[in-house]
Design a protein around this nucleic acid. Structure first.
Lengths: 233, 233
DNA sequence: CTCATTGTTGAACGATCGTACAACAGCAGC
DNA sequence: GCTGCTGTTGTACGATCGTTCAACAATGAG
């Protein structure tokens, strides 16, 4: 009883009824994008339980077998979804910052974009957290993470560097930022940002997005003051 | 064929061999603790995949059925493990802070404990992250989170309050902390702390624990200066 | 020793998981 | 209309999931 698999004959098409296609073929690229979108949507709705081939294919409105036609296995689909998710976030923040003129305005726009929809959303954090949970034990996820996280830190660091350089022009020192360690400053701001983001998503009632922006700006102000050498006078 | 289940007769005990008990009975409390410890160990080793009844029971050295004898279902076991994990962390930090004398030393001890083993460990973060991934869709997890997170923030807030009060004695103002919003300050420090912790665990090579402590202390120093009213002179 | 209590076992169940694959069918080219 | 390519379907499979439950056995009480 292990012979080649057969399939039941499909029901005879209803005569007199306009024959509609049962599905539409799509270009692999479009279909891949749709499957990635469905994966993220499932993560938002059902958390880690949403990471199942059947749930995702149902969300995308396709059959179970299609996923393995476009992705070699589930891990690669999840990694592709993670990559897309990451890329959208970083690109969105980068674009928001680029729309402003001065370094200070760019940083402010970056912070406000970080603490506004669609980024500041409990669903979004839920997706992140599921990905992080896979991080330790999934090589593809690790690869994507190291690729995009570097971009993110570089963005924050660039924004800070521009701000400090401008401030230094009217300040006392120059060069390495007036004794301020730019590397540590970027790490600190990133941490404060991510921490506030995380806290807000876990308990949205504890503080307001405006307050989070204010905390970050206060931190940057203190940094600028130190860069200008206020404390050595 | 749905009659009552029977079991195969056990193999006859080897004659002449000292008969050893096949298992040892334990008090429910001890067994529960062992199962919780096994759950956390599995999470550290295998991530979310470790959250299976069979994996956990194997880790604990018991049979699959025992878990449901001590816990009504898997969710309750996981919630109990989360609660224990949370409690150990908060109690450990609280104890570390309590060992110091002055408010400043207490805060320093708290920070250093936060950025030292066993808290600063990639395995530990992996466990956290799996729990967070369950947060949105598990009522028991949410219950535990709201119970212990409040304790944590209260601890940070208390440490900050003591520090600011002491500083205010020799400062210019008193009462509400010299214009400093204690609620926001506690939120900010918690966020900075958690963010640095998260970043270090994700990419331990980017900075050193000592630098994380320094960043936090710098943040607190700036806060104290503002509380003392340096900027209104 | 006997007996009752109850912590413990492990097979069985039905559900669901990821993947494989043979057949089907949409659609462009003729 | 016909043909070929290939995107798509849906069943089947074996593995593993959480849970149940009747039987077993460790242990204290008598």
């Amino acid at each position: 009883m292990k012979g080649p698999r057969t399939r039941a004959v499909p029901a005879a098409p209803n005569p007199g009824e306009a024959r509609r296609p049962r599905f539409r073929r799509q270009l692999p690229e479009q279909r891949r994008a749709a499957l990635i979108a469905a994966t993220i949507e499932c993560l938002k709705r059902y958390g880690h339980d949403g990471l199942s081939i059947r749930t995702i294919s149902a969300q995308a409105g396709v059959s179970v077998g299609l996923i393995n036609h476009h992705f070699p296995n589930k891990d690669e689909l999840v990694a592709a979804a993670f990559s897309h998710f990451n890329r959208e976030l970083v690109d969105g923040l980068k674009a928001a910052a680029a729309r402003a003129a001065s370094p200070a305005a760019r940083l402010r726009a970056f912070l406000e974009a970080s603490f506004s929809p669609p980024n500041l959303d409990a669903d979004v954090l839920a997706v992140w957290v599921v990905f992080w949970g896979l991080y330790r034990h999934s090589r593809p996820i690790q690869r994507v993470q190291s690729e995009t996280y570097t971009d993110y830190v570089r963005l924050v660091r660039g924004l800070l560097a521009d701000l400090l350089d401008k401030g230094a022009e009217s300040g006392r020192r120059r060069g390495k930022g007036g004794g301020v360690n730019l590397r540590l400053a970027a790490i600190g701001l990133t941490a404060l940002l991510d921490g506030l983001w995380l806290e807000w998503c876990l308990e949205p009632g504890k503080f307001r997005p405006r307050e989070a922006v204010a905390l970050c700006e206060g931190w940057v102000e203190a940094l600028c003051r130190r860069a200008a050498g206020w404390n050595s006078a």
